[in-house]
Design a protein around this nucleic acid. Structure first.
Lengths: 226, 226
DNA sequence: CGTATACAAATTGTATACATTATTTTCTAC
DNA sequence: GTAGAAAATAATGTATACAATTTGTATACG
């Protein structure tokens, strides 16, 4: 494995929760596992920290970025705005080669759904949306957007129930929405894209909010939307 | 200078254009200048790359993040949305200690204006807005917001004319708006904050757009809001 | 029995030497 | 004299050794 592959491998393991949120990333073990010295491994960890996959505290090493309760609140608060903005820009700025690549990724996503591998599903879905971020071609929005995608992948993985019929149907709906998105991007239709993104988000959000109880005390307290 | 100080020093030099966009950052020279070895210096450069201050290309070293024409277009397209979102959140989430710190920073900004040092002005204005980003306390929005602030500082510095009477007046207006913002944050008034941010942005934008021609072709094309 | 302190182990941080990749210069062929 | 290739130079990338910091453990003391 060269440096780039190690980098991608760690990303994938974090996205698929093979490396759990908060898990310690020991430099010595990792460098031994990947057969490189600590120096380049440290640089990889620092690059991952810059993208939000990892948190580093001075003299206390690197840990997989945690998923606290606050993270979930902020996630639901922030995602719709950024997803819409990225979607609109993607429709305006996507290049033909990128659209081809998106079709290829979508095909892989479809395969993963048919194959029933939830890990692959989460990964190729993530690749689909990451590619949309590339299409948007806005260097200011991307770092935030990509961070949202990291946690979106991890949250989905956490709550996914492959045996649940309802959830299977929702997954197929999401797959179909992806196809419509590709069409909207190809047509350069920004408004259509925003509508699709909102729809897509609501599907995802309803699924997640079913499992996420933002406040465990809600049962004992009056139900107030703060 | 310890590692953190070197890190901060490089940030400051990039923000104030002492290190120009695109300038090469040679590892050997820098490590010698700061009296540390190349290993920790490389880590600093990689951390700066993660925040958008620096761009690193494999085997070709680090350069100060460039300021292309496209960057300017994207900047004007993206800033209003993120600035408003951050402003609203800051009003909702600011903690008393942060408000105190903001007052201190604002005092320094006022001093810089009175002292006439454009470098200090840009720096303390940047600190003011960066602090607002901290107050907002949203880990997803911050990386994008901070990147916008980097280029905002650099663009301002590029076009600032300290002798221009009109520009001096606008600077004083901006200073006053900062005071109103502190009041809005203290009152927890998110909507008031958004209004102030929009006003503040328009002041800044008008100033910059006077110098920046985002699209030389616009003159020949019909004026369309795409 | 709980707490504090001193020592030991483990982990991260830094410096230096060496390897690899880019770039520049120089030489040769045409 | 120019173009191309080869060598020299200079840069970045990696490995290893050592230093500093943190964490864990044992023991002494209240």
């Amino acid at each position: 494995m060269d440096k780039q592959e190690i980098y991608d491998d760690l990303k994938k393991r974090i996205l698929t929760l093979q490396l759990e949120p908060g898990a310690a990333l020991d430099e010595a073990s990792l460098s031994q596992a990947y057969s490189i010295s600590r120096t380049p491994l440290r640089e990889i960890l620092r690059a991952l920290a810059g993208e939000g996959y990892v948190e580093i505290v001075s003299n206390r090493g690197a840990h997989v970025a945690p998923m606290s309760h606050k993270v979930l609140r902020d996630f639901f608060q922030t995602a719709p705005m950024l997803y819409s903005a990225i979607g609109r820009l993607a429709a305006h700025n996507a290049r033909p080669a990128q659209i081809d690549e998106m079709r290829a990724v979508q095909a892989r996503f479809r395969q993963a759904i048919e194959g029933g591998s939830s890990e692959d599903m989460v990964y190729w879905n993530q690749r689909f949306h990451a590619l949309m971020g590339e299409m948007a071609d806005n260097p200011y929005l991307r770092p935030s957007y990509d961070r949202l995608l990291i946690d979106h992948a991890r949250i989905s993985q956490t709550f996914y129930r492959p045996r649940d019929k309802d959830m299977q149907q929702r997954t197929l709906d999401a797959l179909a929405q992806h196809d419509y998105m590709i069409a909207a991007i190809e047509a350069g239709d920004g408004q259509r894209m925003v509508d699709l993104i909102v729809e897509h988000w609501e599907l995802s959000r309803d699924l997640l909010e079913y499992f996420v109880k933002p406040d465990p005390l809600a049962f004992e307290l009056p139900a107030v939307n703060s």
